[in-house]
Design a binder for these strands. Structure first.
Lengths: 233, 233
DNA sequence: GAGCCCCAACTTGCATACTAGTGTCCAATG
DNA sequence: CATTGGACACTAGTATGCAAGTTGGGGCTC
């Protein structure tokens, strides 16, 4: 623990630091699906004791990113159809409801903030910076939820998003994909700016479903990241 | 820890037991909003160490039922307009989306299960057993989510439901209220049975919003349970 | 050589000790 | 009498030790 006390409070205690790092590593598949994690090993890597590690793993378990088996170990979950469908369902339900409210409530400075985000996304696409685009993507969705007055929609959406977020991150290297995403973001933002709740909802719903289109290709290229397919549509 | 090992596994470890008891106590306001909780005291009451208590409190913090202030204490949150609105929003978004799917997918035995639940609710209303009705109410909503194929909708709905659940439990003593709730449940179930997604969604939306109608009376009768009103609609 | 059994090493769950920070209460002082 | 300073009791966060259980491999037996 090399941080000063004040910094620890600002950064949010060891737990926050470990959580962010570990979640990021799982989403990037640096901790690959199926890999076994050891509380002791992680404690050593992050230079903290097992206690905060255990709290972080409990949070990640709620997000379905890890599976804790008592007396056996903690595993990074494989990406499952069920998990991806659940995440997509939750995001669609919560964010589509939120974007309707956002369209009704958005004020000029809210719209300006959304457009700033779009511009930054345009620069990220031009620069081919997938990682930055990914962050700005999340930020845009968060902004929409905040504008709706129901910021909790983003909190829950994000928490339920683990399996889907891995699909998204692992699929990013296609430039056409980024262009399409950006175009869809623009459509959502313009509908919100116009105060058109129906159009905003439709645009966002379509957008959220598009992420799923990358799934079959990813499964084909990285079958070891996936659990066995399940038949349900 | 007086339970056998097998029972502990079935019951789900000390944490599950403590979680259920503590959550129930908070929802019933036996631990009143605003009350300070002590990890040490709770550990003594439940005859476990602070570790599982802390895990439970972390979960309850995610549900916004307690607020943990470092180096100060853990408080039962007061019921807030924001918290109630957030809970209502999340339930409406998730469960309305789920009930549409349920209406499309429900099979005869699913419908039979729903109707069994309704009958039990009728008996509970006749007997004036609010507590039982409350459980059956949750069960019905859960069934609908399970039928939809998106059981996660209920998981998240329940987790986000803390503030609203307290309103519901504390408001129960009105018999007309129970009658009205039961009638609305019937409307939802019949729409699902008929495979009418639009009607099911409308009925459920209306139903979920009705819970909010009990809020002003409760606030008037128990102002000490509530945080200061906030102006937003 | 094949199969079975047992043990050792590892796992998480829980209990406990320690650290650092906060608020309160009382006493001393202006 | 009011106010301020300080000690003390209590808090949550973290570290560590102990208990119970699983797994996999090595050695013994057939």
């Amino acid at each position: 623990m090399s941080l000063l006390t004040a910094d620890r409070a600002a950064v949010g205690s060891a737990r926050t630091r470990v959580y962010a790092a570990l979640r990021d590593a799982i989403l990037d598949a640096r901790y690959a699906p199926g890999r076994k994690l050891s509380e002791n090993e992680l404690a050593g890597q992050f230079d903290v004791s097992r206690t905060p590690i255990r709290e972080v793993l409990a949070t990640l378990r709620d997000e379905r990113l890890v599976e804790v088996v008592p007396q056996v170990g903690t595993l990074v979950t494989r990406i499952s159809d069920e998990g991806v469908r659940d995440a997509a369902f939750v995001r669609e339900a919560l964010e589509c409801a939120a974007v309707r409210l956002a369209a009704e409530r958005a004020r000029p400075d809210d719209v300006a903030g959304l457009r700033d985000d779009l511009k930054a996304q345009g620069r990220a696409v031009a620069a081919g910076d997938h990682r930055l685009f990914d962050r700005l993507d999340d930020e845009l969705h968060q902004r929409l939820c905040v504008i709706s007055g129901r910021a909790i929609a983003w909190d829950l959406s994000r928490r339920a998003n683990g399996h889907l977020a891995r699909v998204r991150r692992l699929s990013l290297p296609d430039p056409d994909y980024l262009d399409a995403m950006l175009a869809e973001h623009r459509g959502v933002v313009e509908a919100v700016a116009a105060g058109d709740a129906d159009r905003a909802e439709d645009a966002l719903r379509h957008h959220l479903r598009m992420v799923l289109s990358a799934l079959p290709a990813l499964r084909a290229s990285r079958p070891e990241y996936f659990a066995d397919p399940d038949p349900e549509g």
